[in-house]
Design a protein around this nucleic acid. Structure first.
Lengths: 260, 260
DNA sequence: CGTGACGTTGAAGAAGGTCAACCAATGTGG
DNA sequence: CCACATTGGTTGACCTTCTTCAACGTCACG
């Protein structure tokens, strides 16, 4: 493994330790996982539907979508993954994948062999626990998406999505003048919100005219955070991005994991 | 614990061992978990939003919905839980709940203290693994629901939901003459599919006139399974209900868990 | 300087929502 | 045993939101 790869897995460790308590040894065990860097061009599937893959993927750069599909071939993005996410962590405990992964922008991913992930999860129960916890945050996001597409109108849906991504990117100081890279096309936004790209276009225009957010090409510029939160009915709790150190969980004993 | 309670936790163990390999000792450890039976009347929340609860709940009888909500108070069911499910298993690794649980019909639940669940998961890594895996099946269902409400029309949505429940109830021999208890009102179906109860009513009528399924009060009668599957664009893979014994997973070593 | 991807806009139409009425079944108190 | 209320299902008329289709603009890139 190159130093470059090691550095990138550190991003994934940081993600985990934001919510879980891991010893230095455990953290090191994750950083030391074997991995292989790959570049994926935009709109390319790198895990296809029902594929039995041998690797899980950490996103280093770019945005990745998890896709479901109806029988007309219309796709629905069920989750967006950004840098630091392990896009298919659940495959550690599941053999069959149930959805495709596609790079939405040119992305850099790290492929980590399942066999290595399973070994480290088996050896260090606290790592398995941290993986599980991270999967549960993803499930919470999924749950919010069901509410989003099921019970919110177009404007609210898109505002909610933008709020979610703003918090996940953590590139907002507190309230205003927020700006982040979000290289999705309006077609991608449509697939994520269950709308058509035409209606996404009109809705973005409406949000722009409301003066709350401006989306242009690859950048989202939030002009009125409070307004966007209100329109999007957004409450960041479910993202668990700001778990205080004292509230980070560990159910397995420290002594035991350290001894392993 | 009464024998009655023990018997009910066995249903949960059966659910787990359908996908995961657990030793006799591990299974016994789950069966021996302390628990408390409770009856919940229909339409009563028994875990409210953002509640910090000390218990997880196994459903023994009835149907339970996990709810999200928009700012108008319109509710969206994000998951349905039936007998054998642990409705909030994820709370083992998460302190804060993110959604409410409501009994949709009169239900019997078993409350199992978090502290006991965490202890057993910490002591037996294979149990933690089985819990994690079960959570991932729930997440797969959630993922399908996003596709369902996002990219399918009313008829397809409802047909898909009915297919899913038929498989989860496993009360279908193979193809036809299928009948199962499903004590939801049309209002509940509306909350689950992101429609209004009026439109659910019309859609059920259309499905009835197509001769594929007949829903009456508390019973679903599937007249044409293949037809319903076609209309619902249903593929049961994601439910992982029929995992062959040889394909059931265990990543932690057997020896180690047995020695614990 | 053509070609393709993406964004923008208008006009027409369909899917589903809203409102309102009514019915059947069930339960409850007098 | 009946008046009455409640809950859930059914139906019609009308309206809103979003989709569909189609055209055109613009920018990047070979």
């Amino acid at each position: 493994m190159s130093r470059f790869d090691v550095h990138n897995l550190q991003g994934f460790v940081d993600r985990l330790t934001g919510r879980s308590l891991l010893s230095a040894e455990e953290q090191q065990a994750i950083v030391n996982l074997p991995s292989q860097t790959a570049q994926v061009p935009a709109n390319r599937d790198f895990v296809s539907l029902d594929e039995v893959t041998e690797h899980a993927c950490v996103i280093v750069e770019g945005v990745v979508g998890r896709f479901g599909q109806n029988s007309n071939g219309e796709r629905q993005i069920t989750t967006l993954h950004i840098a630091g996410d392990m896009a298919n962590l659940q495959s550690v405990v599941q053999t069959k994948g149930t959805s495709a992964l596609q790079a939405l922008s040119t992305s850099t991913i790290l492929r980590v062999p399942h066999v290595a992930l399973r070994a480290v999860a088996a050896r260090f129960p606290a790592i398995a626990e941290a993986f599980w916890r991270d999967c549960m945050v993803d499930a919470g996001i999924l749950s919010q998406w069901v509410v989003n597409v099921g019970r919110r109108d177009a404007k609210t849906r898109i505002a909610h999505l933008l709020c979610e991504m703003a918090v996940r990117y953590k590139e907002h100081g507190q309230a205003r003048a927020m700006l982040f890279q979000f290289p999705l096309t309006q077609n991608h936004l449509a697939d994520a919100t269950g709308l058509t790209s035409v209606h996404v276009n009109r809705t973005l225009k409406a949000l722009r005219e409301d003066g709350v957010v401006f989306c242009s090409g690859r950048v989202v510029h939030i002009l009125d955070w409070d307004g966007l939160v209100r329109i999007g009915e957004f409450d960041a709790d479910y993202l668990q991005t700001d778990v205080k150190p004292s509230e980070r969980m560990r159910i397995v004993e420290t002594s035991r994991a350290a001894a392993a």
